[in-house]
Design a protein around this nucleic acid. Structure first.
Lengths: 158, 158
DNA sequence: CCTTTCAGTTGCGATATGCAACCTAGTATG
DNA sequence: CATACTAGGTTGCATATCGCAACTGAAAGG
């Protein structure tokens, strides 16, 4: 595959642009961070994040539309609405945490509060890293972009 | 304290907000994806991403200001400028890859092309996960948010 | 009833984005 | 040398999105 072809593929069918369509807007990550931290109700998000009410309304709606949050009426108090993460939403945790760790390391320079700990050992979670299939840590030097078809041909040849 | 300062504090107190202040704008992640895949020059970014020239100019400038990209004139052709990732920028790889993996799994439904492989084993990299300090995979059930001061008190009590 | 709470919606000005045209320095061509 | 072309922007202007404050409407609570 030529370099030009590789680049074209890269930009037409990448999971990153697909993901950004859904969670790439201004407040989406912060709303999700709130949800991971236990925020459930509109007013909780609004006062905690300081986000404008109309924007919050719009973002919650989009996250629900995309199946990242579930919106349930509270049976005990019919004014209240409960937003909570779906499995699809919970699966964004590595993204949120790696972003947070990067921000702590390179921008704020210190760990934020509160800390996410292993419930049993009470120790903070490890830094999120890129690993090989057999669990070794990989840096950029250890990796290479390969076309899927080329990779299959390699495997067949071996 | 002015409203602007209040907002600034709000933005810097959490690693996620701090990170988003720098890389949270519309095209930033896509520009970084390009950089990770070898794009170096203004025109390369522009034609491959289809981004407006003024926005690209502004984003590249911001990424350089924040030390995520380095901007060097090309000594061989003094019209050309080379943008490349700094260590701070390269350290965003787990964020980009976990976002990509999430998008592949939940939005596009299939792995994108090309694939990032371990250069030596030729196998695709592993899914990015959250791990304990001793390397066990952690799910949300295994974790807990703890105030840092409370955690210290726990440690002292033990 | 009367008040408060919750989850929004509406109107409107400020900000950000996208597009096309233009600009400047440097390079290739004849 | 004159001319054309290239790389990396900038400028003007239309549109889209955001943020704030005020308002709404249904449901509790007293």
């Amino acid at each position: 595959m030529s370099r030009a072809e590789q680049l074209r593929d890269l930009f037409t069918e990448c999971g990153i642009s697909a993901a950004l369509e859904v969670v790439g807007e201004r407040w989406s990550f912060l709303i999700l961070r709130g949800a991971f931290n236990g925020l459930r109700h509109f007013e909780e998000f609004q006062t905690n994040l300081g986000i404008a009410r109309n924007i919050l309304s719009n973002r919650l709606g989009r996250l629900v539309e995309h199946g990242i949050l579930r919106r349930d009426p509270d049976p005990a108090d019919r004014r209240k609405v409960t937003y909570r993460l779906t499995e699809k939403g919970r699966d964004l945790l590595p993204v949120l945490l790696s972003l947070r760790q990067w921000g702590e390391r390179w921008i704020s320079g210190m760990p934020s509060n509160p800390v996410l700990v292993d419930r049993y050992t009470r120790k903070p979670i490890a830094p999120i890293i890129v690993q090989s299939a057999d669990g070794r840590e990989l840096s950029l030097r250890d990796m290479e972009w390969v076309d899927r078809d080329d990779l299959e041909r390699e495997a067949d040849a071996a």
